[in-house]
Structures are given as C-alpha cells and as structure tokens.
Design a protein around this nucleic acid. Structure first.
Lengths: 192, 192
DNA sequence: CGTGTCATGTAATCAGTTACATGATTCA
DNA sequence: TGAATCATGTAACTGATTACATGACACG
C-alpha cells in the first residue's frame, strides 16, 4: 500500500478537517467524484498506514446506538507532507475508454451496434453533467471562508467542459454513423 | 488474468490480422493510444491464455539473426467471442485526474503553484493533440478497404475534442487564477 | 418488514506496471 | 561505441475492487 495517489487524496481531504473512513468515502462521492474515486478497501488500510507514519492521529468517538467512530486528523508532519506533495508536478495518465474500443472495431458489426454504443455514451455524459451540477451546489453551499471555493469550482468546470465536448462529439458521430448506414443500405439495394 | 477489457482489446486487434506480442504493443502505441494502453506484462500472459481458451492459435516464425516471432491469429471461436463482446454495452469509468486533485486543494499553497499545475496540464494537452494528429495520419495511410477508417477516425476525433476542451478550460482557469493572485496581492498591500 | 444509513475492517481476487533476464542487428 | 529496434517472457510489486463479516437504528 505505497499508493501515493490515493494516500494524498485522503491526506488532502483530512487537511480540511478531521474525518472518519466513512466520512471520507462520502466526501469523495459528493465533492470530488468528478475526478476521483476511492473504495473502502483502499481507505481503511491507508488510514491505518497514515497513523503508523505519524501523518495522522486517530481518536475514538463513542456513540450510543451506533458503532464507534474512528476519527482521523492530520498531524503537523501530515500537513508538511501534503504541502510538499502539492508542489510536485502531477502525473498525466491516459484514460481507457471501452466505448471507443468498441467503436474502433465497429466495422466488424452492423452500424446499429455502434450507434447504440454512442447513444449510451451520450446519455451517460448527460447524466454526469447533472451530477456535476449537484456537486457544484454542494460545494457552493458549504464554504468556510477559507477561499477554497474558486479552486473547487474550477475542477467542476473542467469536468463539465469535458462532458459537453463529449456530447458535441457524440452528436457529430451519430450523424456520420447514420450516413454510413444509409450508404450501406443503398449498396445493399443495388446488389439485389 | 480474467481481465476482460485487456483481453478483448487484444482479440480486437488480432481480428485485423495475425500479430505477435511485440506487434501488438506497437499497434496499441501507434493506433489506439488515444484511448487505450497495454504493457508487455499484460500482453504476453493474455496471448498465452487465449491459446488455452482456443480463441487464438500460435505459429512460430523462424527468423535469421533475430529471435523467433510467435505469431497469433484468431480462431473461429475467437471471432465469435469478439462479435459477442462487441454487442455488449460498454462500461463507463471516471478517470482519475491528479492535476484536478492538486488544484482542488489549491488554497493550501500559493496561487503560483496552481498556475504552474494548470500550465503544465495545458502543455500536455497540446502535446497530445500533436500525437493524435500523427495517429490520424497513420490510420489514414494504411487502409485495407475494409471500411475501418471512418470508425477509427471517429475515435481520434473524440480524443482531439477532449484535448481542445481541456485547453479552453485551462485558458479560462489561468485567467481566474491570475485574478485571484492579483486580489491577494492587493489585500497584502492593504495589510501593510 | 424491508430498505437505507451508519460504521469498521479483512480477505480474496483482479488488474496493471516495472524490473529483470537475454541477446543479435542496425544505425549514427 | 552507444542507443534504438527487434523479440519473448517471468517475477515482484503496486494498486484497486468486491465480497464477506457484523450489527443497530430510522423511516415509510
């Protein structure tokens, strides 16, 4: 579990205030799901590791009727480690896209199949756009006057622009695919 | 190694003609790197597995002065498996973006740090745009008259549109960040 | 009474990269 | 002479998801 990326995603969220593993998953889901994801299976072991490295400390919060909460907060060392990491250049990685893989091989099947893939892709982007508007709302409503908001909104804007570009692309691709379909249909007619 | 995604990426490429593991890595690099990646450590074990499942068969090509080539080609079962997979809806996955993670936490450091991250991001997108133009050229030049080209070009178009959207976003983000910087500078002046 | 939320954690599995091992040929 | 290309493969490791185990409370 040397996972630097996931580790600093968690350290970063902890820098905004103490949280439990459960809280963190919710924060990730509600506030940064437009560019990040993390499962419980990653979060809990990383939190444990952070305490070992003295980047975070854990306090137990007793609760009545509910399980105890293990609340983690950053230590000074944790803050320092985050600061150092934030200044390092980010790595870029190409996102795999299964829809594109199927479309790339589209000549192997009927055009309808590709049309369906692109339609589903387009629908999904529309749905994401809605989710991102909701994230925008959640972020705008909290605000602690720390000046976080402009930075956070920029990341949502990025995600939305990506969605809109994908939708515009899909519209154009669908046009081209239906033309392809028409020309294949006429070729079939001529063969008769 | 049940890796369905990687497996069908390889089966898909093999459907265009026999190839060795080495060939496949080159094909992936040169023709589909705008939406896919695969390392040798994945390719060779998957090829071995494909022969076990009888989706591909292997022929040894002796070469003089060079190591033997292990050339794989799809069997009828392989073609059928690909056809079936192509018709199944694709899964969507959110791409992690480290630049966005650092930008999201931008209020923790000086504005310059975020500006630098966005600048690097923008540069990278410009570089990708060049690479994608090169892929477009390679794809257009081969052509076997199988009607692959329109599908393949659509995937490149998608990648390019994503890049362009990212660059436009970066331009706007840089404007906002320099404003933020100016307003922080003036606040510092007033405090003096 | 069933679903959802709160809450933590581990084990098994899957997925993917990097490093290592080996070695000839070509090209600048 | 050193780098790049051709060529295959394994082992170690890192990274990430899913399933499992456990259990109370709130809400409709």
């Amino acid at each position: 579990m040397k996972s630097n990326k996931s580790k600093f995603a968690i350290v970063g969220l902890l820098s905004r205030g103490p949280a439990s593993g459960y809280d963190l998953r919710k924060l990730i889901e509600e506030r940064i799901s437009h560019f990040w994801s993390e499962s419980f299976g990653q979060i809990y072991p990383i939190l444990k590791q952070l305490t070992v490295e003295r980047l975070a400390r854990r306090k137990v919060e007793r609760q009545i009727g509910k399980p105890d909460r293990q609340v983690y907060s950053l230590t000074d060392r944790g803050e320092a480690a985050l600061d150092e990491w934030l200044r390092k250049p980010a790595e870029f990685q190409v996102a795999r896209n299964e829809t594109m893989l199927k479309l790339f091989l589209g000549s192997q099947v009927e055009v309808d199949v590709s049309i369906e893939h692109v339609n589903r892709y387009r629908d999904h982007q529309l749905q994401l756009l809605d989710e991102y508007t909701e994230i925008e709302r959640i972020l705008s409503e909290e605000e602690g006057g720390t000046g976080d908001l402009p930075f956070q909104l920029m990341t949502v804007s990025h995600a939305k622009q990506q969605c809109r570009a994908a939708i515009r692309w899909a519209d154009e691709a669908l046009r081209q695919l239906s033309e392809l379909q028409a020309s294949r249909a006429s070729r079939r007619r001529r063969r008769r």
